[in-house]
Design a protein around this nucleic acid. Structure first.
Length: 429
RNA sequence: GGUGGGUUACCGAAGCGGUCAAACGGGUCUGACUGUAAAUCAGAUGGCUAUGCCUUCGCAGGUUCGAAUCCUGCACCCACCA
């Protein structure tokens, strides 16, 4: 199976501008680009698919360019959005662009020593570098002239907004010109002849292809991948508490791992195909195992493993797995503060003077309140009475339970838990 | 501006002088079950130095041995009439 057929088999090709794209790619190494929005200083699961697609291209011998939209981010892409986006200031954008570029190293190979079929390493480019210098008049004359308004009005991203109540500003309307020019610039400068993007980017991609033809009579290509959505129609990568980030400081490896472990049965097959680098045989055998015995949830575990390793490395995966073991019942003992701190990175903590552990010890009820697991002593008492309180993952059997130095799970920390999975640390200082 | 109705715990909603920390439903929490799922079932759901005490029923006063419940004033909301 050649590279493009593999992409198709994985469900990663939604639309392509040319039915022969596969042959074109197989003919020789190409340069391909995809854009990323610098709306935050970290990438999140929503942009994961794009990175993975570029990564696949690189592994297949092509050269990927990741374009971070330092310029377009100032405007705001209207595609797939129902309302005008608020604009980011330049400083924020620059910081975000740097943050994104750093994270991309996990996915793409930027090492100049490693060349892929003579194509060189991956590149990160900031479109502000080539767009920032335009004057308005120059832009209108050289670029704007090539865009018939009736064609622009026909784009879905524009039509849907004009049809709704939200309307659209001239600024957003102009967005597609900038992205179209990106493609033209990259084609001229880097020989980049293929743009890939999410299916909502189709309009912008074809705008770039048209512009390349008009300006330079040059044929370039585009393809889109499907948007990653869950079977219930909601967006992938979002939880009640917000987006799942690729930055370990924003979303811990454990939380990231857990997000994928909890993937619905209906979604996990597609995720394995699109997001992991497992072979079709492996995926097929996971599919078979799942329909045989869904409750083993092998697919979810494998998905979580693969993606956590990709995003957070082997060490991150190890932490996530250790944390998983602990969060799902293993008793906690004999750990050190540092390890415990990593495992419970997301967990809130309370403090108490160490002297409380001496003599009679610290009443369990007070400990629960101090750690923030109960909002009053009465609340804490109820939790204990109902059998919902745990010290280091061991159930507390009565209100007379007190905590002493023997309950320390590490040098200075006691792990408290209320219910199935609500944890808090109590630091004895 | 006039008349009538309302304002109750996280939300909705009963209560109309003592037995009201306040029915009921939702939510939330805990437990059982389970696939770290969904559904279901059970219990809990103001605070405390706790068989008792304290604070809550729009706000401020008053009547009464005793008020969420009665009276007065104020604020906000709804309906009808101007």
């Amino acid at each position: 199976m050649d590279f493009f057929a593999d992409l198709q088999a994985r469900g990663l090709v939604h639309q392509a501008t040319d039915p022969k794209l596969g042959e074109w790619l197989a003919a020789k190494p190409r340069t391909v680009y995809a854009g990323f929005d610098p709306t935050a200083d970290s990438l999140h699961v929503g942009s994961l698919l794009g990175l993975i697609v570029l990564r696949r291209y690189q592994k297949a011998g092509h050269r990927p360019i990741a374009v971070v939209g330092g310029a377009t981010g100032m405007i705001g892409d209207p595609s797939g959005k129902s309302a005008e986006r608020k604009l980011l200031d330049k400083e924020t954008l620059e910081r975000n662009v740097d943050g994104l570029a750093r994270q991309m190293r996990r996915f793409l190979d930027f090492d100049p020593a490693v060349t892929h079929n003579g194509q060189g390493p991956a590149l990160v480019a900031n479109n502000h570098d080539w767009t920032g210098g335009w004057s308005y008049l120059e832009f209108l004359r050289d670029i704007g002239k090539n865009f018939p308004v009736n064609v622009m009005l026909g784009k879905d991203s524009v039509k849907s907004r004009l049809g709704g109540d939200a309307g659209m500003s001239y600024t957003e309307f102009s967005y597609m010109l900038l992205q179209a020019y990106d493609f033209v610039y990259l084609a001229e400068e880097y020989g980049c002849e293929l743009q890939a993007g999410g299916s909502d980017q189709w309009g912008n991609i074809t705008a770039g292809i048209d512009l390349a033809r008009r300006m330079h009579s040059r044929q370039v290509y585009g393809m889109t991948w499907p948007l990653l959505t869950k079977s219930d129609g909601t967006k992938m990568g979002k939880t009640e508490s917000g987006a799942i980030w690729l930055d370990a400081d924003r979303t811990s490896p454990y939380e990231f791992f857990q997000y994928w472990v909890n993937t619905d049965d209906a979604d996990v097959g597609g995720c394995l195909r699109m997001l992991t680098e497992l072979s079709h045989e492996e995926i097929a055998s996971l599919d078979a195992a799942r329909s045989e015995n869904a409750s083993a949830r092998e697919s979810q575990k494998r998905l979580a493993e693969e993606l956590t390793r990709l995003v957070h490395g082997d060490a991150g995966l190890a932490t996530a797995q250790q944390a998983t073991e602990i969060f799902f019942g293993a008793e906690i003992d004999g750990l050190d503060d540092r390890t415990l701190g990593q495992i419970f990175a997301d967990v809130p903590a309370g403090e108490m003077p160490k002297s409380q552990l001496a003599g009679e010890g610290l009443a369990i009820v007070d400990a629960l309140v101090a750690a923030g697991l109960a909002k009053s002593k009465g609340d804490a008492r109820r939790t204990v009475e109902q059998g919902g309180a745990y010290v280091n993952n061991r159930r507390v059997d009565g209100l007379d339970r007190t905590l002493t130095a023997a309950d320390l799970a590490s040098e200075s920390v006691i792990v408290l838990r209320s219910g199935r999975k609500k944890y808090a640390l109590l630091r004895m200082v």
